[in-house]
Structure formats: structure tokens, C-alpha cells
Design a protein around this nucleic acid. Sequence first.
DNA 1: CTAGGGTTAG
Length: 633
Amino acid sequence: MKAVSKLLQKIPPSTLSCSYRYSSSLQETSSLLNDFTNFCYHRDLPRAMHALETMEKHGVYADAVTYSNLIKCCLAHKAVREGKRLHHHVFSNGYAPKTFLINTFLNMYVKFNLLEEAQKLFDEMPERNVVSWTTMISAYSYVKLNDMAMKLFVLMVREGVMPNMYTFSSVLRACERLYDVKQLHCSMVKVGLESDVFVRSALIDVYSKLGELLEAMNVFREMVTGDNVVWNSIIAAFAQHSDGDEALYLYKSMGRASFPADQSTLTSVLRACTSLSLLELGRQVHVHVLKFDQDLILNNALLDMYCKCGSLEDAKFIFNRMAGKDVISWSTMIAGLAQNGFSMEALNLFGSMKVQGPKPNHITILGVLFACSHAGLVNEGWYYFRSMKTLCGIDPGREHYGCMLDLLGRAGKLDDMVKLIQEMNCEPDVVTWRTLLDACRAHRNVDLAAYAAKEIQKLDPQDIGAYVLLSNIYANSKRWSDVAEVRKAMRVRGLRKEPGCSWIEVNKKIHAFILGDKSHPQIDEIDKQLNQFISRLSGAGYVPDTNFVLQDLEGEQGEDSLRNHSEKLAIVYGIMSFPKEKTIRIWKNLKICGDCHIFAKLIAKLEQRHIVIRDPIRYHHFKDGVCSCGDYW
DNA sequence: CTAGGGTTAG
């Protein structure tokens, strides 16, 4: 009897009087309520809903806590209809629900992605507390309706409702301007909320999104107590901004501070390995990844690491083994194959994706066009480009036009390029004109090149590439006075071409070779070896291709400057450091020049080596005197 | 009843 009276205490007074009036007995009332509460507790939605109906018939009503349990039940079952019915049921009984119960419905609508319903309920609420406001702000920031989230935050403060740490971490996601973040940051410090770990990671995240890594680092450093999410936030920040070194350093510190690495940590670490081309470290991380075997995002990052580090065997192994591959997995593998020169395999994979994979997205198509472009498959390129709308439902964007222009440019179809630029659905930008300019240089069209270069200079007067290419074109056509003029214009603006630089990983250390830099401790030995190789290759018919000297504005003239190209030094150092069976992997900041390309092919044959060079655009696999790019890049 | 971190291209 004590239990029954305890149950009845939970029933709102207005409801209670109802239950006395209509129910047949007190015993029956309590047993109905008991059943209902039990069903809710066990998340048995159908029975709970049924019990509720029976209760209604007897004029018995549950209390707010039980209702909120039932709502949780609906959420767990994704039962939208039942949730709505519950909502109308509660509101039609003539008693005003408490704010916290309405908040629960608010939350339910948000979780069901019914933002309009939530907003309507929010507007009709007799009073709104921090939780009501925060629920709405969080809902809008989650779907990137940032203006709405910011607007609600301002309204909330104006109405005198104090934001708490939940509110701040929600509203931070919606900030698009540094000014707003700083303002919020100040308010948080004032009320002493900035030490909350949720707020802290949200701050790090938003500073990182705005590119303010120093601010992000400051927030991180001030941390007294933290958790692994805060660590993950700061590691992700650096990994996403291509500062792999810092990301890896923080990863090590995280371990020293005894915070365990989880899926999120490892994903960022792999991304760092990818951007630094650290295949060996990536392999070590792979071992830890095995603990999170079913994590899709993590496996995608692993897959990308193997692709970008040029180890396609590993990438294919991972890809074939992955269960539940998504668009990103497929796109990564297709682009990986294409970038490593396996265009036909990439196109075949796209074929099977259409049969048995997820729906391709605009990035998938980019990989496909890239494959066509780098294999010189003009007709196939046109086919995929023209049919992407009907086959995949994707309108060509700026990048797709860019890929097509690249394809046409490589194939020397300059007229088609101009036509395509005219029919583009967006304004040509610097990249568009640079693609045209590159094509003009490769196919010696001086007049069109000059036109493109001038368009570039209109859009970006600081663009070094335009000057360099224009100068090279004039040089190739022996128009020396024009060359002098371009160089003078560069000097006046204080522009210098970035020096060529190549990296190679030996014994887990990165060795950098920069054009004209002699600081490597073994440079004398490398030089000696290089000279020996060159004379041996000369015997086999190697002639330095001085045509490419003309691309090198800063270098000295003649064979000497070619001889010192950083990738040659890196290749020789790789041969010196590695046994024959180990693949030599080199990373380069500029596109490989024609002479180094020939050199790499010949030396791969002479020394029986497998050499992989990754430039900013693609990969070259040298083996047995040929390159995977088919001399087309 | 309300809050934080990770993957493809450019």
C-alpha cells in the first residue's frame, strides 16, 4: 500500500482527481501504472503504448517522469508516429506540462530531424529555460543553420537566460567569424566555464576550423585537467592543416600523459602520416588500428594512407577486406589507383562500384576524370563528363571542369579547352587559366599562353606561376627580350620561384634535398655516386634533356643545374641507403621535370630498383625502365 | 531534458 501511494504521489494533482473519478478502484489504477512504468523501463514500446491506452480508458494518467521515459523509448525505437501521438496526448489532457517535459519533446523532435515541429513547440512554450534554448541552438548548429543558432543565442541572452557550458559548446560550433568566437571566449572566461572539457574541445575545434591554430594551441596549453577528446581535438587540428609533425609530436605527448589513443586519435595520426608520406610509421599505426577493426572512418584513413604513400598492394588488401565500404572508401581507392598510374584499374573499379557499391558522389567522379586525364583517355573522359548528370545525378562543378580542361590540355586539344571554358557554368578562376597556360607551354602555343598568363595576372598579380610559365614560353621561342621583361617584372614585385625540394625517409628520419643546398652530411658521397651513375647512363645512351632547363627560372643554365635537381640526389641517396629489394619512396614539392623522369626510368633499370616519386599532383612508379604514368603527366 | 574529437578532392 505504501508503494501505491508513492506511485500516486507522482501523478499531477489535476490528473489525480481524474483518476479517482473514473477508475474503478485504487488497486486497478496502481496496477495499470505499475505495468506502464515497467514497460517504459524495459523500453518495450508497443506494450507501453498499449498500457497507456488502457490507462486512458480508465482515466488514469502517468506523471511527467514516466512520460519522459516513454519518449526515450520512442527515441530508441525511432518511433516518430508514437512520439507525435504522445505529444498530442500529453497536451490534450488539460493540464499544463512542466517545462522539463516539454523540453523532452523538443529534444525528441530535434533527434527525429523535425526542426520545424521543434521550433513550433519552442515558440508555443509558456516559459523557456536554459535547456530549451540550448536544445534549439544545438539543433540549428548541428544542421549548419549557423545564423539561426547565433540569432537564438542573442535572443536568449537578451531574455536574461544565463548560458551554461552546454550552451557555449553548442553555439561555438555555429561561429563563422573569429570576432564572435573571441567574444564568446571572453564571456566564458568571465563566468569561469572555459575550463570545462567540453567547452575546451569545442573552442579548439572552432579555432582550428577558422585556421587559428595558435589560438587553438593556447586553449590547449592552458588545460589543467583534460580528457582524450581534448587531445584528439588538438591533434586533429594540426593533422587537418597539414602540420603532420606537430600532430605526431602531440600524439606522442598524449601517450606520455597516459591518455589512451582511440579511433579518432588514430585517424588523425594516419592523416598526419599520409601528409608526410611516412609509410613505415603508418604501418606501425596499422597495428593499433586492428583493435578497432570495424571502424569505417579509421579504415578509410588507413586505406588513404597506403594509397598516398604509394603502397597499392596494401591499399587493395585493406579495401578488399573492409566490410561495409562507403562512398569515401570507393572514392579513395579509385583516386588512389588513378594517382598511382593505374587508370584502367581505377575505371574498372568505378564500373563495379556502379554495380555493387554505393552511389558515387562528386568526388568519386573527380577520381574517374583524373584517371582518364592521366592516361590520355580523351573519349572516355568526355563520356564520363557528359554522362555524370544522367548516370550519377551530379552537376559538373568547377573541379570537374578543371579535370576536363586538364585532360584536354594534356592531349593538346587547346581549341576544345577554350570552348569548354566558354561553356562553363562558373567564372574561370586562376586555376582555370593556369591549366590552359600549362597546356600552351607543353604544346608551344605562345599567343594563347600569353593571353592566359595575362588573365592570371589580372586575377592574382602575385602569382609566380604565371611569370615563370610566360618566361619559359618566351625562352622556348627564343624571344629573349620578352624573357628579360618578365624577369624584371618579377624582380620589381619581389617574387621568387620556390626551389625544388625532395624528401626521403631513411631510418625513420626525413632527409630533405633542396636545389642548391649542400648541407646534407653525406653530400660529397652522394655527388660522387651521382656522377658515376650519370657517366654509366651516358654509356647507355642517356643525354640530359636541356629543354627542361627552360622551366627552371632560378637555376643556372646548362646540364649542371639539371644534375643537381633535388630528386636526383634523393634517388641516389635512396640507392645508397636501401637494399635492392626495398622500394625507394620520394616526395617532391614541384612537378618532376622531364630530365629527372628519364633519369629515374634508366636508373631503375640499371640498378634493378623500384622507385616511387610523389609530386604535388600524382605518383610515378619507376620499374624496369618504364614509368607507371606512361610518360604522360 | 541540453554540449566536444576522426575519413575521400580542391
